[in-house]
Amino acid sequence: MIQFCIIFLFQLFCLTGATESGIVGGKTAKPHSRPYMVSLQVQGHHRCGGILIRNDFVLTSAHCKTEQDLTVVLGAHNIKKQEKSQQRIPVEKYHQHPKYKGQFLYDIMLLKLKTNATLNKYVKTVGLPKKNGKIPANIKCYAAGWGQTGPNKPGSDVLKEVMVKLQFDQECSHKWQNYFSSDQMMCVHSDKRKEGICQGDSGGPLLCRKMPQGISAYTKASGCDDTKYPHVFMKINFFSQWIKNVMQG
């Protein structure tokens, strides 16, 4: 019975925590300093983050797809304002990974835009890591997004960013057990108390050495600022060939 309860609690944390994740603590990003950042919106409300990897493709989390159509918002800093720098483009096609089953594995998606983004100083694409590239543990990375600033707090109007450190896979395996895959996922933690990702901005990037290495996946739902639980990102280079195939196809 004890073992069952532990498994059930981890399932509860993951299933609710994987819906959306954003930034706790950290600081406000310099306006338009991350021109590849994307706000995915439903009827004008922010749902998830993402990154522009080609002028017609956005990379995000598979669980960000809803029954309602998503709108890709580019060139934004304050998503509550109608900034002249913003571009709003409908999604033409949703490419969820074919092995994604609505849980944690293969939680990645490509969005084909209906029209090409206009690239300028506010809107730029970002490169992706090499297929077999490795990032060592304890390296400093940054997560960014418009998500909640803490449990039961509203999302941020302006883009925020926070510094985190890549952890050894064993830390996430110990806490998240079978829900963590070292092949597909990255484990991160903040040096400071109560900083990291939270509900409100899944699909946002983890940037290490100025390169997006991960896509925000899940954290503990009942306390995203609980320092005992590391945050989890999907490992972009694991999906490099699939991404390439979809964009070529």
Rank of each mutant, 00 (worst) to 15 (best):
V162G: 00
K175Q: 13
G150F: 05
T149A: 03
L159N: 00
M163R: 06
K140Q: 14
Y142E: 10
Q177T: 14
S156T: 10
H174E: 07
E171K: 04
S181W: 08
T149H: 03
F168L: 08
S182D: 10
W146I: 07
C172L: 08
W176I: 03
L166M: 11
G150I: 01
G145S: 09
K160I: 02
D169Y: 11
F168E: 13
Q177W: 10
V162M: 00
L166T: 05
G147K: 01
Y179D: 08
K153A: 11
Q177P: 00
S156N: 08
V164T: 09
D157F: 09
L159K: 01
N152V: 12
L166G: 04
W146L: 08
S182P: 12
K175S: 10
C172N: 05
P154Y: 09
Y142C: 02
Q177K: 15
D169G: 10
M163N: 05
A143F: 04
K175I: 15
M163S: 07
E171D: 15
L159G: 02
L159M: 02
K175C: 06
K153C: 04
K165Q: 08
F180G: 00
V158I: 03
Y179T: 12
W146V: 00
N178G: 05
G145Y: 04
Q148W: 06
V158S: 11
K175D: 00
G145K: 07
D169Q: 14
D157Y: 07
W146D: 04
H174T: 13
Q167C: 14
S173M: 12
V162H: 00
N152F: 14
Q167L: 14
V164N: 02
V164Q: 02
P154N: 03
C141E: 08
V164D: 05
Q177F: 12
M163H: 01
L166E: 03
W176H: 05
V158H: 07
C141M: 00
S181P: 07
E171Y: 13
Q170M: 11
K140F: 11
C141N: 01
M163F: 01
K175F: 12
Y142A: 07
E161P: 00
Q170G: 05
T149G: 04
Q167V: 14
M163T: 09
A143Y: 02
C172D: 06
S173L: 14
S156V: 11
Y142N: 03
K140W: 06
A143H: 01
S156L: 09
K165N: 12
S182Q: 15
S156F: 12
H174N: 13
H174P: 01
H174Y: 14
V164G: 02
M163C: 02
V158F: 04
W176F: 07
C141L: 04
S182E: 14
K140D: 15
S173W: 09
Q177A: 10
G155I: 12
F180P: 01
C172K: 15
G145N: 03
P151T: 04
S181G: 07
Y179F: 15
